[in-house]
Design a protein around this nucleic acid. Structure first.
Length: 516
RNA sequence: GUCCCCAUCGUCUAGCCCGGCCUAGGACACAGGCCUUUCACGCCUGCGACAGGGGUUCGAAUCCCCUUGGGGACGCCA
């Protein structure tokens, strides 16, 4: 009676469509907005996105916001923001599951009317007690289906008495009934119908449950491949049952193994902190594609053993069939400042930072410098060549983009810090440095061409003249001009910094030395 | 407790489907060395795994069974 003619028609169309022509691929990422976008979610989104792009299909974003109490707008924003940053652009959506609530109810009504579902008047308290008791006796609890055989008259009578009811799906109970499907990753999965309980699809307040909403939305969105975490594996037989009862061809399922922590527990912000959130990687200076590349390899491998791929290369080579079946571990150990996240993830980022084209890298560096008041527009005009040479020189030892504004600060500002250890090691080493450095500055100042070769000549000459090892003045100079004891080859570095700044910093360092 | 899934170096994994090419390959991490003005990069070397037990077979990491271990699901959560 609630089932209107037009809705009926809609489902009918769906049925016809699904078993006619081979449709193009449609996949979706369907997060629930109850928190942040995390590593696991991003990986799921990535695999869906890759599959869509590979097959020339459509990637849909659907926000499953039916849990009104826990869903927040902030969370939606963060998820969209995260996906955008990762570069996982969607073609449709974001759709919101709550928008389809009526359709979910209609599907439930249809199931009810056609005898695939029934009203259950058992109270929640009653069931909870049964469950608890079963648990204490260590026996499996499954709803016994006692309301399944209520006659229409009994149902009517209960309703008139004002009893509340939920709608349960009536799982086929023929002797050897089996629900089976071919998972694109796990292969054939079979489950005996007798091991599936009559699950609830509509609450007593008539609101649909996820298991129903999700399946109906996938049908409505004409999803062809459901690529999701393996935690959805156990739900799948139930959803297949729903599809079958609705007369809809189920999508192809591809369950991907889960990513756990090094104790094989679920990753969560609560216990692991920000390191599981995507926004953290953005803040810590990760390149979005480096993260994607790393994530892609958590549960998937290429046929040729390669690990680094451009976007297009990965899209080209990615395939559902090479997703493996065992869970992987996100190798994060807390309290290690160097390996603050999975070391392999850092390795990927560092490799991208030092090997990607300067053209692709520059926007990230620009943004980082801007955020730290180190940017100057001339880096894109008059000083462009200098800027490019500079980041190319310093990037080889950087791991993350933030390094450009911290470790690399001395290149873009005179206001940088001196590492106390470096000062002690390189500047306090020899009191004569207070004389050598200004002398060096004078020598450098005479150079008409400030290039690495000429600069080195000045250094070597001075070392010989003073009868000291060149390393002494080289290392002292490094600290004097950069504040650090580590960095690129010194002569190249000085050439980049330019005569004026070098001479000034060399002379100023005398004060530091004299304070020793 | 029931059902489902999984099992190769510390971690990510190749090999498994279609047994022999596997004294098990690669990557990260770690250790040592080379290069070097430092730190990186790079290069070289080392460390390091087929969970255990049965079968099948001339031959098993690969096939089968059991055990063990791990994960997931079992909500009027999603």
């Amino acid at each position: 009676m609630f089932w209107t003619q037009s809705r009926e028609h809609e489902f009918q169309k769906m049925v016809e469509k699904s078993d006619s022509d081979q449709q193009s691929v449609r996949v979706r990422f369907a997060p629930s907005p109850t928190g942040y976008l995390h590593i696991g979610g991003a990986r799921t989104a990535l695999y869906n996105w890759l599959w869509a792009r590979k097959s020339g299909g459509v990637f849909i974003l659907r926000i499953e916001d039916t849990d009104m109490e826990r869903s927040t707008q902030d969370s939606v924003e963060e998820i969209l923001e995260g996906l955008r940053w990762l570069g996982l652009d969607w073609d449709e959506g974001p759709y919101f599951q709550t928008q389809n609530l009526e359709k979910h109810k209609e599907a439930a009504d249809k199931l009810l009317r056609e005898g695939h579902a029934y009203r259950c008047f058992c109270s929640k308290e009653d069931l909870d007690n049964q469950r608890k008791e079963a648990e204490s006796k260590k026996i499996a609890f499954m709803y016994d289906g006692r309301c399944r055989n209520l006659t229409p008259e009994q149902v009517q009578a209960n309703i008139e008495k004002g009893m509340t009811s939920v709608v349960r799906f009536g799982v086929p109970r023929d002797a050897h009934s089996v629900v089976a499907f071919d998972d694109a990753v796990y292969g054939r999965i079979e489950k005996r119908a007798r091991d599936i309980e009559d699950f609830v699809i509509l609450r007593s307040d008539k609101s649909p449950l996820y298991i129903l909403s999700n399946a109906v939305d996938d049908a409505l969105d004409k999803i062809t491949h459901v690529i999701r975490g393996a935690d959805g594996l156990a739900n799948t037989p139930k959803q297949i049952l729903i599809y079958n009862a609705l007369g809809i061809e189920p999508p192809i399922f591809a369950h991907m193994p889960l990513t756990l922590d090094n104790k094989k527990a679920k990753l969560s912000k609560r216990v692991h902190g920000e390191v599981v959130t995507i926004s953290y990687y953005r803040r810590r200076g990760f390149l979005p594609w480096a993260l994607c590349n790393f994530l892609a390899l958590l549960g998937w491998s290429s046929p040729d053993g390669r690990e680094f791929f451009s976007r297009d290369e990965l899209i080209d080579i990615f395939d559902l069939s090479r997703i493996n079946r065992h869970n992987s571990i996100f190798n994060y150990v807390s309290g290690d400042p160097k390996n603050w996240t999975d070391p392999k993830a850092i390795h990927f980022n560092a490799t991208y930072v030092r090997s990607m084209s300067l053209n692709d890298l520059t926007p990230y560096v620009k943004n980082e410098l801007k955020n730290n008041d180190l940017w100057s527009d001339c880096y894109e005009s008059t000083e462009k060549e200098w800027f490019l040479n500079t980041i190319d020189l310093i990037r080889t030892r950087y791991h993350v983009i933030t390094d450009f504004s911290t470790k690399g600060r001395f290149c873009f500002s005179d206001d940088f810090e001196f590492d106390p250890k470096a000062v002690i090691k390189n500047l306090y080493q020899d009191a004569n440095l207070a004389k050598y450095l200004p002398e060096l500055a004078r020598g450098l100042n005479t150079l008409p061409v400030f290039d690495p070769e000429k600069i080195e000549g000045i250094f070597r000459d001075l070392a010989e003249k003073k009868q000291v090892k060149a390393g002494l003045i080289i290392n002292a100079s490094r600290t004097a001009v950069s504040g650090s004891s580590v960095g690129p080859g010194l002569f190249e570095l000085l050439a980049i910094l330019g005569k004026e700044r070098v001479v000034k910093r060399l002379n100023q360092s005398v004060r530091l030395i004299e304070n020793a």
